[in-house]
Design a protein around this nucleic acid. Structure first.
Length: 670
RNA sequence: GCCCAGGUAGCUCAGUGGUAGAGCACCUCCUUGGUAAGGAGGAGGUCGUGAGUUCAAUCCUCAUCCUGGGCUCCA
């Protein structure tokens, strides 16, 4: 049963797009859908009235991928319901790299073994070569159908839908769906189910937890294989894996989600910070140091306690805890009741301290500690202080989401007139830095007011406009993230991707009219009146830990010489040459080269292998020839070859030159 | 926080209801060698933690901690 619009079409007498394309001689086995005047439709669709252009979409084209994946999701759901009767389906869309379908299975969850069985069932369905059919249905009829099938999630979803309602069928299987789909299951040539995960119905944790099965699909097995291979390659770059291999950092259960940096790892960490310090010198920042733990009053004043308290750690003294215990042990006063609220109040009074999750409140205190003149503005405070945030246990991840970290944080106090200039200068700074690290695909997003926020809407309007104007002044493309801003102000975010293609926010700049208000900050203007400064929150690397992680994946552990914890490893051919090796190392160290000597009782090949596994940029071989010439047989990691005998002076000059960040090398030479 | 999967030597992992294994790394000795693994020997583990079942638990059960994959991409 199919419904068709009445009457002849403008283009041809063809019943549907498939026939139309066939008549035009454009139909072949690889055509999965068609683009009609820019709109993707499946081949069973009627040719719309007034259509002017019908372009076939073939399996290998980008537009086909989402269709193939969505159709594969349908086949998976069919297979699941064949194998596990009683299972209900929820959403099953195509995604950026595959598809998923959410299920509510009464018997519980799916295992990896189930996936293999489902895949086998899917293959059967594909071989059955079942055509996908679209049907437009009336709401009541459709509602009754979904109810009769027991598909309560679909039925609920139906109530939210407007406009034309359609279902798709292949074989006996039917799904509330807009389409489009491939013509038949036979077109699904390459797929793989990848993993199972829990997911809340409609993404809301108050709703029931469903079982989500993820998979991916491609136009052909070759492309699927390539994709799976890419994932394998990306896993090799995972910063957690490389961090272990290169002995950079580690974790301990007694400090969950809080990295420990080894000597090697800390060397890189400090190199990052030193690099930013170098920039600060040239960009007019003043580095300051502020406390770690504050009286709660600070966070009450800043608004962190009500708006950010869930993410904070609190601190108490033993005295404070004992006092709280004594207080709680007393009988409640006449007419008072002991409730969780009253107990909490007692605890709050004695757990007096909060550990800072951000630097901004303390920077406000410092700004306010002395009367400021307009002549001092813009005042740019920089702070590498450690921050602690209580991230929920399920969301922490390697070094990209941690509970203890530092930012290359800074707050600029300026006049409203100075705001555009400061935003522009900061954007320039961010791109200068990303170039030094060889990041080229930074994306800009502007995050606007969240639901929970401080300050009135007029202030938010002003702040959002200031940021948008700043980005637009640079002529840069950006997208708007509605409601994603910080509670005190909107943000410009700079996103980079990790090895697995996951985007991370690194740099940011945020306009804030609220905190200066709350802290009653003032400066004396040229008119001798008091004025309120505006505040910019900004970070280039963002969280140093997160930047470090993304950098590891970006360079696959091959840190450039200027960041490498070990720039040169001298290896001896035999123990006779150990003395010269140590002498050479000592001399290079005087010039600041980070050099070690491997004088172990191993063969040369093994020593070179060990150095390569640690991704040391240069290996210097010392044997008879080198001792005689007072040089090193240098092997370069990046050129992956022996670059010949260099004198110690040449080695020193080369490494010293590479020890500066790229943007600063030219100036060093001139 | 919730769902799923894990946790065995420093690392990567195997394994079994009768108190444990491999490779690499480490230590010692032999070897004195020329660009990705020379040889031999040795040391190293309360099998994440706590409880339960059992004659007996690393293995089964429960709890707990930690790690990992998800929980946004709207039929």
């Amino acid at each position: 049963m199919r419904t068709q619009p009445d009457g002849p079409t403008a283009m041809s007498a063809a019943e549907n797009l498939q026939e139309h394309l066939e008549a035009e001689g454009k139909l072949d086995k690889k055509v999965v859908a068609a683009r009609v005047d820019g709109v993707v439709k499946d081949l069973h669709s009627a040719v719309p009235e007034g259509a002017t252009e019908v372009v076939p979409i073939r399996a290998h084209e980008d537009d086909a991928l989402a269709i193939i994946r969505h159709s594969t999701a349908h086949v998976m759901a069919d297979a699941v319901q064949r194998l596990f009767p009683g299972t209900k389906v929820a959403f099953g869309p195509a995604t950026d790299d595959g598809f998923y379908y959410d299920y509510d299975r009464p018997e519980g969850t799916f295992s990896e073994d189930d996936l293999a069985a489902i895949e086998a069932e899917m293959k059967k369905i594909i071989e059955e070569d079942l055509p996908f059919r679209r049907e437009v249905m009336q709401r009541e009829e459709l509602k009754a159908l979904l109810e009769s099938m027991g598909e309560s999630y679909k039925s609920e979803h139906l109530d939210r839908l407007e406009g034309e309602l359609s279902v798709y069928k292949h074989g006996d299987w039917i799904d509330l769906c807009e389409g489009p789909h491939v013509p038949s299951t036979r077109f699904l040539a390459a797929f793989k189910l990848t993993h199972v995960a829990g997911a809340y119905w409609r993404g809301d944790e108050r709703n029931p937890m469903l079982q989500r099965i993820y998979g991916t699909a491609f136009a052909n097995p070759k492309l699927l294989k390539k994709h799976l291979k890419q994932i394998e390659e990306a896993k090799k770059r995972d910063h957690r894996k490389i961090g272990k291999e290169l002995d950079l950092f580690t974790f301990h259960p007694w400090a969950p989600a809080s990295p420990f940096f080894t000597a090697r790892g800390a060397a890189i960490y400090n190199a990052l910070i030193d690099y930013v310090r170098g920039l600060y010198g040239r960009h007019g920042y003043d580095e300051i140091i502020t406390p770690q733990i504050f009286d709660r009053k600070l966070f009450e004043t800043s608004g962190h306690l009500p708006s950010y308290g869930e993410n904070m750690f609190f601190a108490a003294t033993l005295d404070g805890l004992n006092e709280a215990a004594a207080e709680l042990a007393k009988d409640p006063k006449e007419g008072e009741e002991r409730t969780p609220e009253s107990c909490k109040h007692i605890i709050d009074e004695h757990v007096r301290f909060g550990v800072k999750p951000m630097n901004c409140p303390s920077h406000c205190l410092l700004f306010g500690s002395q009367l400021k003149s307009y002549r001092e503005l813009p005042l740019r405070y920089a702070d590498f202080g450690r921050l602690h945030r209580y991230e929920r246990s399920g969301v922490t991840q390697g070094m990209t989401r941690v509970r203890s970290f530092a930012q290359d944080d800074g707050h600029i106090f300026c006049t409203e007139e100075q705001l555009p200039g400061e935003i522009g200068a900061f954007i320039d700074l961010v791109f200068e830095v990303y170039r030094d690290f060889d990041f080229h695909d930074a994306r800009i997003a502007i995050a606007t007011r969240p639901d929970e926020r401080l300050g009135d809407d007029a202030i938010w309007d002003k702040a959002e406009q200031a940021l948008i104007a700043g980005v637009e002044a640079k002529g840069l493309p950006y997208e708007i993230l509605e409601g994603e801003g910080a509670f005190y102000g909107p943000k410009v975010e700079f996103h980079l991707k990790d090895a697995l293609g996951r985007p991370w926010q690194l740099g940011t700049v945020q306009a804030d009219f609220t905190l200066p208000e709350r802290f009653e900050l003032e400066y004396v203007g040229a008119d001798n009146d008091r004025h309120r400064p505006v505040m910019l929150h900004r970070a280039v690397l963002g969280s140093v830990e997160r930047f470090y992680a993304v950098l590891i994946e970006h360079v696959a552990g091959k840190f450039p010489t200027w960041l490498a914890p070990e720039q040169l490893r001298i290896v001896t051919v035999a123990s006779d040459f150990d003395a010269f090796a140590h002498e050479a190392a000592a001399e290079l160290r005087k010039a600041g080269v980070r050099v070690t000597v491997d004088d172990s009782n191993e063969r040369l090949g093994a020593k070179i292998r060990a150095a390569r596994l640690m991704r040391v940029p240069y290996v210097g071989v010392v044997g008879g020839k080198e001792v005689e010439a007072r040089g090193l047989g240098v092997r370069s990691r990046d050129e992956n070859k022996d670059i010949g005998l260099l004198t110690l002076d040449q080695v020193r000059d080369r490494i010293v030159q590479e020890s500066a960040p790229p943007s600063q090398r030219a100036t060093n030479e001139s």
